[in-house]
Amino acid sequence: MKIGFIGGGNMAEGIIAGLVQNFLPSSIFVADPSLDRQTVLKDRYEINTFDHHRYFLSEVDFIVLAIKPQGFASFLPEIAPLIQKKQVVISIAAGVTIDVISDLLDESFAIVRAMPNMPAKVGHGVTGLFANAHVSDDQKNVISEIFEGCGMATWVKEEAHINAVIAVAGSSPAYFFYFAQLVGQMGAKLGLNAEVATKMAVQTMLGSAKLADIGDVNLDDLIRSICSPKGTTEQAMISFKESNLDSIVEKAMLATVERSEVLAEELTQQIKGS
């Protein structure tokens, strides 16, 4: 099974770093115009790197489009004659729908939208996946394996649900970074060294995530295990509820979905108008 990346940026590298754990490095190909990026990727992962996709495009089973979405309008028609029906095109570009990609390539091509998040770079990402009707179950299984190498991969039933994935996983690292920042800042106000307080918040977030990820204990049980009756943590949780934190989070995530929809529409019009 051969996998070719068009574009060797940070997100592509995050996927590749996971891929080499389960796939032979010799089966991974990357095209990037930057000689520096080619050298870095080749040295780190012992994969095949080139300055142009023409060296491998016809040979791979899966083609990962890891270029900026603004370049789709001119680039996809260029490669369309080179793509074979047996290949699968995987786009990791935010906001570019399968309909747009199909219009630029061919409606009969097997196409997948993949939405990985930033933690994929460190092997703990989440990737939302949606495929058109031309992608077989066997091909889906391989695609799952590709993205599970850098974390969790989940298929959604409707392409519109990709926007929900963005709200839940794509944007949420920023939510967590912000919360850790606030906790660290408050620690400094309480007298701790500011840098140490922030590191404490980040380390606690990391440990809490690991606790939540193991075993069969649900989040409610974990919360209750820390909230002793009339204890310190219980007072913080009461304060959160009195401040309607749940409504604040809901409003923020709905704003993320709405903005995702607007950006996708703007990008669609931009690409079609090019």
Rank of each mutant, 00 (worst) to 15 (best):
F5C: 01
T39E: 13
L190T: 06
A110E: 09
L41R: 15
E265N: 14
G123I: 04
A209G: 14
A80W: 07
V217N: 08
V64W: 01
A164G: 06
A93L: 09
N141K: 14
P173D: 10
E159R: 06
K68E: 05
I271F: 04
I238M: 04
M186E: 14
R113C: 10
F179D: 10
I223Q: 15
F5N: 00
A164F: 05
T49W: 04
K189N: 06
D61V: 02
V40H: 08
N117Q: 13
T268P: 06
G191K: 02
S144V: 05
Q87N: 04
A153N: 01
G71F: 11
I3G: 02
K68R: 06
I223N: 13
C227D: 10
S243E: 14
Q269C: 10
Q21W: 05
T198I: 05
G187P: 09
A153H: 00
V165H: 01
L19W: 12
E158P: 02
Q185L: 11
I83M: 13
E107G: 12
L192S: 13
S74C: 11
K157D: 13
H161W: 03
D61Q: 08
D138I: 09
G4T: 00
E261Y: 11
K272I: 06
Q181T: 12
G9V: 03
F179H: 12
I111P: 03
S247H: 09
G18V: 00
